[in-house]
C-alpha cells in the first residue's frame, strides 16, 4: 500500500474525529475510536484503490463507533433505557391521546442561508437529545441501517428500537418546532 498512515492522520484525522464526536459526544471516546480506526486501517488489506481514503476510513470508523455504542448500551439494562424518558413522553399527548400541543405548520427553508440556519438548529436539537436516542436515530436515518442491523449491532429487540426511534423523532420534532 502506497498510503502512509501519518498522512491519513494529517489529512483525515480531524474529519474522523468530528464524525465520531457527532455520534459519541465524548471527546475521549471519539479520540479512541479514531486511533482504533487508523490502527485497523494499517492492518487491513481491504483498501480498494477506487474508493477514496476518507470514504474507506469512515467505513471502518462507523464499525468502531457501533462497537463503542454497544459497550455503552450494555452497561444500561434495556428496561432502564426505555424508562429513562418515560416521564417526558407524557408531555406530547393529553389523556385522550390528542396532541397536547398541536403541530404547527413549518416554513420550508427557501434559500441557502435559511437552509444553513435550519441545519444549525437541527444540530443544536440533535445535541439536546439523550445521547443514546441520538445515536440510534443517526444509525437509522443517516447511516440508513435497517432495523435488523441496528438490533443486531446494539443487541436490543426490534420493539426497543422502534420505541427509541419514536422518542428520538418526537424529541427532535418538538425541539425544531420550538426553535425553527
Amino acid at each position: 500500500m502506497a498510503a502512509n498512515p501519518h498522512d491519513w492522520l494529517n489529512e483525515h484525522g480531524d474529519y474522523l474525529y468530528r464524525f465520531a464526536l457527532t455520534r459519541l459526544r465524548d471527546p475521549h471516546q471519539a479520540e479512541d475510536v479514531v486511533q482504533e480506526t487508523l490502527l485497523a486501517a494499517i492492518k487491513s488489506t481491504t483498501f480498494a484503490e477506487q474508493s477514496s481514503p476518507r470514504t474507506w476510513l469512515t467505513g471502518i470508523l462507523k464499525h468502531k463507533i457501533i462497537d463503542c455504542m454497544r459497550k455503552q448500551l450494555r452497561e444500561i439494562p434495556a428496561s432502564e433505557l426505555l424508562a429513562e424518558e418515560d416521564a417526558n413522553m407524557d408531555e406530547f399527548f393529553d389523556d385522550t391521546g390528542h396532541w397536547a400541543e398541536k403541530p404547527q405548520a413549518w416554513d420550508i427553508p427557501h434559500d441557502a442561508l435559511q437552509q444553513k440556519q435550519f441545519l444549525q438548529i437541527l444540530q443544536q436539537c440533535m445535541a439536546r437529545l439523550p445521547q443514546k436516542l441520538a445515536a440510534i436515530f443517526t444509525m437509522r436515518d443517516v447511516d440508513e441501517l435497517d432495523n435488523e442491523e441496528i438490533c443486531k449491532a446494539l443487541n436490543i429487540t426490534a420493539t426497543n428500537a422502534w420505541v427509541m426511534l419514536y422518542r428520538a423523532r418526537m424529541g427532535l420534532r418538538k425541539c425544531l418546532e420550538m426553535h425553527w
Partner: peptide
C-alpha cells in the same frame, strides 16, 4: 415533518462534520 427531518439528516451529517 418527520419525513422532512429524515430527508435533512444527510445534510446534518455534512454540516456537523464541517464544524
Amino acid at each position: 415533518q418527520l419525513k422532512w427531518i429524515q430527508g435533512a439528516m444527510q445534510s446534518w451529517q455534512t454540516h456537523a462534520t464541517d464544524r
